[in-house]
């Protein structure tokens, strides 16, 4: 029952978010601030993780390819597929649920407990729109982060495969172009788009409706991370089932 209640409350929140709009000039500033905090602020860790996971995928595949009949270029193929299909969109989004998600929950949650949200409402401002809408818009640029992650993941694979002496550079490039299905990219970006919405709104929900004090803000962030991950994984399953099978 409480789950149903929360789901209902979540959708009511969304209705409020897309309800009466905040003054345009103010909204514009808020969106740029959010892009800076949520997106630009995450680029470093995303680049770092992407490069090294791509590298590890390449090494693992290379080490497991002992059959001389299988061409070494398969390393590139495997790295490309795993990075584009799952590693970049899904794995990075789980990381972002921890980084961006808990930031969103704790910043909105602390505004709740210190009555800043009440202060907005008292002034006649739609606080849901003011606080959450700019985050959703800022997260629309999240697919660019994932594109960068894909590029760096494959670059990491290339560097590791070539430096490790597993594959020759031109064999890697050939493997990279093997059986390329454009729709896989489309699929990856459709789910990234859905993930970006989840990453902005589920943590916002946990912050906006929290009760209590500073201690509860911390708890809310943890709960938000768990639930955001769960929703991401379910959405991942559903989109994969719908689009690829």
């Amino acid at each position: 029952m409480t789950y149903l209640h929360s789901i209902g409350e979540y959708f009511l929140m969304l209705k409020g978010v897309f309800g009466r709009m905040t003054k345009r000039s103010v909204l514009k500033d808020l969106i740029f601030k959010e892009i800076d905090e949520l997106i630009i602020g995450s680029l470093g860790i995303v680049c770092f993780l992407s490069f090294f996971i791509g590298a590890v995928v390449a090494i693992q595949t290379a080490l497991n390819l002992n059959n001389p009949l299988i061409p070494k270029s398969l390393v590139a193929f495997a790295a490309r597929q795993s990075v584009i299909l799952e590693f970049s969109p899904t794995f990075i989004s789980i990381i972002m649920a921890g980084k961006v998600g808990s930031f969103i929950t704790s910043s909105i949650g602390s505004m709740r407990v210190t009555e800043q949200i009440d202060a907005l409402e008292v002034m006649g401002i739609n606080s849901k729109n003011y606080l959450i809408f700019p985050k959703i818009i800022a997260m629309l640029t999240y697919p660019f982060v994932i594109a960068i992650s894909m590029f760096l993941g494959i670059l990491g694979a290339y560097v590791a495969a070539v430096l490790g002496g597993f594959v020759k550079p031109d064999a890697f490039i050939t493997g990279l172009q093997d059986d390329f299905v454009t729709f896989h990219l489309v699929y990856a970006f459709i789910k990234t788009f859905l993930f970006s919405f989840i990453l902005a709104t589920v943590p916002a929900y946990h912050g906006y409706y929290m009760k209590g004090g500073a201690l509860e803000v911390g708890q809310a962030s943890t709960t938000a991370f768990v639930w955001t991950s769960v929703v991401l994984i379910i959405t991942n399953y559903a989109t994969t089932q719908l689009l690829l099978s």
């Binding site: 910043s107 602390s110 505004m111 210190t114 009555e115 800043q116 009440d118 202060a119 008292v122 002034m123 006649g124």
Partner: peptide
């Protein structure tokens, strides 16, 4: 009308409720 009314209200919260950003 409620929104218009609220623009005419000034409120000092017990804890201040300043926007910390």
């Amino acid at each position: 009308e409620r929104r218009e009314l609220r623009k005419e209200i000034g409120m000092v919260f017990q804890g201040g409720a300043l926007f910390d950003s």
